[in-house]
């Protein structure tokens, strides 16, 4: 505990000048300020949000209302205070989503729902808070985009095709849609190449790094997603598995016989030398013990 205090004191002392130097504003775009939660906050959401908060946010922001936030630059602040509570839901949502050092970006860490749940939880500390009516937003007016994915052998490119559902219900190629390509890896999706914008045919062609390891036949799982940080569209991503990665079938790291191998992989020369030496020396020892017993026999005879 004393140790923790010490860190805090040192942190405060050393960060005070830095605080002044880096005091910048963190502006949220107007259209984002207006964003509101898709549904009315429920008790269930607040409970979920509390769990997420305790796991993720509490380490820096402390417990809301307790003013026990971590001394960082800029200060994270207590989220029950006006500084946070006077912001719109959209502002909070934007800040959680995008982050700004030292506040991490939670876009890939927390799902949409979780981010709204946390906001629902934070709002429980503000008795004056009234949630804007989600239904008042009216019907969705943005673009509705569906993606498809294929690999073009002649072009040696991965093609993502965006199709748009128009107001009259007809489908048409969606131009000007920003698309990001991801490859599935063990702990998450990895972006490949830069973001592309679809052309008039609704297509975006991606160079693929063919040296990227795939499975043993070279298959990689690819996903194309619409880049829509401002949540202006409704989009359906597309996924597919293509044999365009580098076939990778590396053996386990314990194949060799080495000093560090388990004993079933003892280096053969060592096993022979060890067993041989032991057998020879103990062979002699056994011979000597038999001889000793013979001394007795010889006397009897």
């Amino acid at each position: 505990m004393r140790f923790k205090k010490l860190i805090l004191i040192i942190a405060v002392l050393t960060s005070a000048p830095a605080m002044i130097a880096t005091a910048q504003t963190w502006v949220v775009p107007d259209d984002q300020k207006a964003v509101c939660a898709p549904i009315k906050f429920t008790q269930e959401m607040q409970k979920q949000g509390e769990q997420v908060y305790m796991k993720i946010c509490q380490s820096c922001h402390g417990l809301p209302g307790k003013d026990n936030w971590m001394k960082l630059t800029p200060p994270p602040g207590d989220l029950a205070k006006d500084k946070a509570q006077l912001q719109t839901d959209g502002e909070l949502y934007y800040r959680i989503t995008t982050g700004k050092a030292p506040m991490p970006e939670f876009r890939n860490i927390l799902s949409d729902d979780d981010r709204w749940n946390v906001i629902a939880f934070i709002r429980t500390f503000n008795p004056k808070y009234v949630q804007p009516d989600p239904s008042a937003k009216g019907s969705f007016s943005g673009r509705v985009v569906t993606l498809a994915l294929q690999y073009s052998d002649p072009m040696k490119k991965v093609i993502a095709t965006a199709t748009e559902k128009l107001k009259d219900g007809s489908m048409s190629p969606a131009a000007g849609v920003e698309i990001i390509l991801y490859v599935k890896r063990y702990f998450g999706n990895m972006q490949v190449g830069d973001m592309k914008t679809t052309n008039a045919k609704g297509e975006a062609a991606f160079e693929f790094p063919f040296d990227l390891p795939g499975n043993k036949d070279g298959y990689v799982d690819i996903t194309a997603k619409v880049n829509d940080p401002k949540n202006l569209m409704k989009s359906t991503p597309a996924s597919g598995s293509f044999a365009i990665g580098a076939p990778t079938d590396k053996p386990g790291l314990t194949e060799t016989r080495a000093w560090w191998s388990t004993r079933d992989k003892t280096p053969i020369w060592l096993a022979i030398t060890y067993t041989g030496s032991v057998l020879i020396i103990w062979g002699f020892i056994i011979y000597i013990i038999i001889s000793i017993l013979k001394i007795r026999k010889v006397a009897k005879a």
Binding site: P104, R185, F187, G188, P209, P213
Partner: peptide, 20 residues
């Protein structure tokens, strides 16, 4: 960052961003 060398990728524990 933590990941699988066989996949040539690592994922950042804080941002969850996966990179080569």
């Amino acid at each position: 960052y933590f990941g699988d060398e066989n996949e040539d990728s690592v994922t950042n524990g804080t941002t969850r961003e996966t990179v080569r």
